[in-house]
Write a protein that binds this DNA or RNA. Structure first.
Lengths: 355, 355
DNA sequence: AAAAAACATGTGATCGCTCACATTTTAATA
DNA sequence: TATTAAAATGTGAGCGATCACATGTTTTTT
């Protein structure tokens, strides 16, 4: 193994080996035009021999640009954030940037500030925050003296934002159910501290009110299948009669499916279920899940692009980028007539399986 | 908004503001003992006023340590790698390190080399490679003059490795099935280029041979539910009769469950299924999946710890760390007698639903 | 109260690069 | 061939911190 203790070659080592000045080496590694071809080759050969890798640390210090962007993410690795991070990294690599990550355990202003400062110390050129921020919590970020784009946050945050139109997504789900003849809709929402969860809930409510209907019932989970299961059960146990259920994400939908089944309700004959996200597995749920596709890859790319504009050409920076979600119809939804109807749901809630 | 164009304060700005020399400021930010309390307070006040954040870029240049570790990961964001990355970052943060990520689109020696070199330019103190490397491909990494630990790779790689004992994991699954009386076992494996997939396959085979049994059939997927579905179907269509199925991960298991159901086989009455990973959703599959738990969080932490030892106290570095998987029994497995038995499987393979 | 030891603070050089400018070499023009 | 412009290369300073050492101040000891 190459000795780990030996220090890496510097630009001076290369200069000496090639018999030129350090500046010429610098020109070669930066593809400056005015270097004679013969010299260039000589330098390149020396670089190869010494396995020289220019230090981006030294370069950053000299140029005041790090070509590093920081990504702050929150909580445990959910499907969405993970997808975004991955796509952000890909896009960044393409544009010559590296990505440094910093995750925060809790969504407090304090933790967020710490994470951003840690990135500022690294002299990142910009920061992407993948966090379900509600508008009020973000004000202080404007003090941070570093370009910041919020991802999937409330567009009213007062900072540049890339997001998915969650209102519209929820509406898409509701209208799909409405078109199928459903009139009694319930909701299993995500954690209300999450911006997207709240938006979806509002969208659901508004779409129903717009249609002249009253929301039947709602309960909330923490995105996990388990919580979706529990929330659905709690809804069923209170005897709320609904034939359509909008669920905050696909994992919770999986739990909901289980709860409905245990309760003796069949999907989609008796209850139709619509999820959110379109995780790859949702196609193989039982039944395959109708869901609202969130284009996380695009969101990641879009937010990165927005951040880079903010960094490189601040004058052209946009305030908000919004991505539209899409309905993916599968088999967990059906027209309301296809089942045995509402009265059955009501009677069943009295003779629950576990009793 | 604080002006984005204004350059961040430096140690000299702070020194001037506090009326001390830059060295004294340096002492304060590094908690050096010999600074008078009054001076320390004065400096801290100046730091607060100027919102000074020490540049880790400059510090890295001076100290030759970046407190940065690089993580290379491969392919699209699978559950395991994602979990590990997350846990690595958490553990790194705790130990005062930052994490820079670099993902590679394809698993070639060339791509891997590029990624590692990109990290070397960033002067990372060490590199963690989350990639399903087979032993042969890693030799050249020893030339890289940077501490490297492979995660979840073949322990025979000739480089320090942290991994989960996949052989043992497969054996755990097989023995569970054997104990339930199953004698005809099939496998849906992961991509054979992946080390862990291959190890699981070997473990499966060896455990069977050790028990004096012959593997019935095997097929391979790409980790996705869809591929698990397709692979299972192909197995069923060739008329192979099995009562126990070991599947390379939980996503593929979901596909397998669907395929078996469509084929008219009930789980666990007619076929028992064992997955790998124990993703949170697997508990809510239908039926809840028996699976081999992979402790990805521990793996992430363990590999990071191993890398830091290699960096900080190379003499104490370990060559390999191995984590033992654990069997999680749920409802997708049952004793072979509980169903209608083998002959049924065989007859059903002739009258498949879709025919 | 003077000398010694301990503490507190400051100065110069350095890390590996880039920038701005100075100098040398080569090619183009008169 | 001398003159000038252009191209190629080199030099000094600085980015923001740390390290090793020098100097200045207290405190302790005799």
């Amino acid at each position: 193994m190459t000795d780990l203790n030996q220090k890496p070659a510097t630009i001076n080592d290369v200069a000496r080996a090639a018999g030129v000045s350090y500046q010429t080496v610098s020109r070669v590694i930066n593809d400056h035009p005015s270097v004679r071809e013969a010299t260039r080759q000589r330098v390149k050969e020396a670089i190869r021999q010494l396995k020289y890798q220019p230090s981006s640390v030294a370069r950053s210090l000299a140029t005041q640009r790090s070509n590093l962007i920081g990504v702050v993410s929150f909580g445990s690795p959910e499907f969405g954030p993970t997808q975004m991070l991955y796509n952000i990294e890909q896009a960044a690599q393409m544009r010559g940037y590296h990505v440094s990550i910093s995750s925060i355990p809790a969504l407090s202003q304090e933790e967020l500030g710490l994470a951003v400062n840690a990135l500022r110390r690294q002299r990142v050129d910009g920061v992407l925050i993948i966090a379900p921020l509600l508008g009020a919590e973000t004000g202080f970020l404007r003090e941070c003296a570093v370009p910041i784009v919020l991802v999937d946050a409330d567009p009213s945050a007062g900072l540049p934002v890339s997001s998915i139109n969650q209102h519209y997504g929820a509406r898409l789900g509701v209208e799909h159910l409405l078109n199928l003849g459903h009139r009694r809709l319930a909701l299993i929402g995500g954690p209300q501290q999450w911006n997207n969860a709240r938006q979806r809930q509002q969208g659901w409510k508004e779409a129903l009110l717009d249609a002249g209907l009253k929301p039947v019932a709602q309960a909330f989970g923490d995105w996990s299948a388990r919580s979706g299961y529990a929330a659905t059960l709690s809804l069923l146990e209170t005897g709320q009669a609904f034939t359509g259920l909008l669920v905050g994400n696909d994992q919770m939908s999986l739990g909901a499916l289980r709860a409905l089944r245990e309760f003796g309700l069949s999907v989609p004959e008796e209850v139709s279920v619509v999820g959110f996200d379109n995780i790859p597995e949702s196609e193989f749920f039982d039944p395959p899940l109708t869901t609202i596709y969130q284009d996380f890859p695009s969101l990641g790319q879009s937010s990165l692009a927005q951040l880079l504009t903010l960094i490189e050409t601040p004058t052209e920076a946009e305030v908000a980028r919004v991505i539209e979600p899409r309905l993916v119809v599968r088999s967990s939804t059906a027209s309301v007539g296809s089942g045995v109807g509402l009265e059955l749901v009501e009677s069943k809630s009295r003779r629950r399986r576990k009793e």
